[in-house]
């Protein structure tokens, strides 16, 4: 219930108007949205029980490692049942396959639709979505870890909450199924990071400082 309460209100995209190039405009709009979502995500992380008790080094490691996974849980959740198999980055930023291809994000589109279909088939509840998002951050296999015991306790707390929630619904296999979906999320996030790094390096798409810093941490 704490995670449900601290779940941030979805952001709206601010349409970029610095260029006449339509696909570049879409990209710049998306990158601006991502940068603002990152800011919100960092504030959200601090509110997850146990996160602020971690050392600053470990907080940084977990975020640098798990930020894209946590953001993509939101995109995949919003994209469920979207008409035309669109990716719903924001209520006012929905990209279909053709738009993603035109902006150089065909690979990201395919990976994210796959993740969205997986979540849709699992019929996730809002409780499961917020827990999955927090677990993606906690389970990021960040290295080096400053205080492994504290990170472990942070992970255990989330795992316990998930198990308690699922046992209250008398769903004995759900917790395991959710955990088994984490590798696909990791894989999807890796492809997303590569896609944005490619855009930046090969097409010189300018990125905001925070987004660039977080992408660099993964490069």
């Amino acid at each position: 219930s704490h995670l449900l309460l601290t779940e941030p209100t979805p952001l709206a995209a601010n349409q970029d108007d610095s260029t006449n190039d339509g696909s570049l405009r879409t990209l710049l709009t998306l990158c601006d949205l991502l940068n603002r979502e990152l800011l919100v995500l960092i504030g959200w992380a601090k509110q997850i029980p146990g996160f602020s008790g971690l050392s600053l080094v470990d907080q940084m490691s977990l975020l640098q490692s798990g930020w894209m996974e946590a953001l993509l849980v939101g995109v995949a959740w919003r994209s469920q049942g979207a008409p035309g198999d669109e990716l719903v980055f924001a209520g006012n930023l929905r990209l279909d396959e053709a738009q993603c291809r035109a902006t150089g994000l065909a690979d990201l589109y395919e990976a994210l639709r796959h993740l969205t279909a997986k979540y849709q088939a699992m019929n996730l509840s809002p409780e499961e979505v917020v827990t999955l998002k927090a677990m993606a951050l906690a389970n990021s296999d960040a290295d080096p870890v400053d205080c492994p015991d504290s990170v472990q306790r942070f992970q255990d707390g989330l795992h316990e909450a998930l198990q308690e929630y699922e046992s209250s619904r008398r769903e004995q296999h759900r917790a395991g199924r959710l955990l088994m979906s984490l590798p696909l999320l990791r894989q999807t996030a890796d492809r997303a990071v590569q896609a944005f790094l490619r855009l930046h390096r090969h097409r010189c798409v300018p990125l905001h400082k925070l987004l660039l810093e977080m992408l660099d941490a993964k490069a």
């Binding site: 960092i42 940084m60 975020l63 640098q64």
Partner: peptide, 15 residues
């Protein structure tokens, strides 16, 4: 740490 100064600053801010 210098490389990740924005994240560092954001985490140090109280809210």
């Amino acid at each position: 740490k210098e490389k990740h100064k924005i994240l560092h600053q954001l985490l140090q801010n109280s809210t």
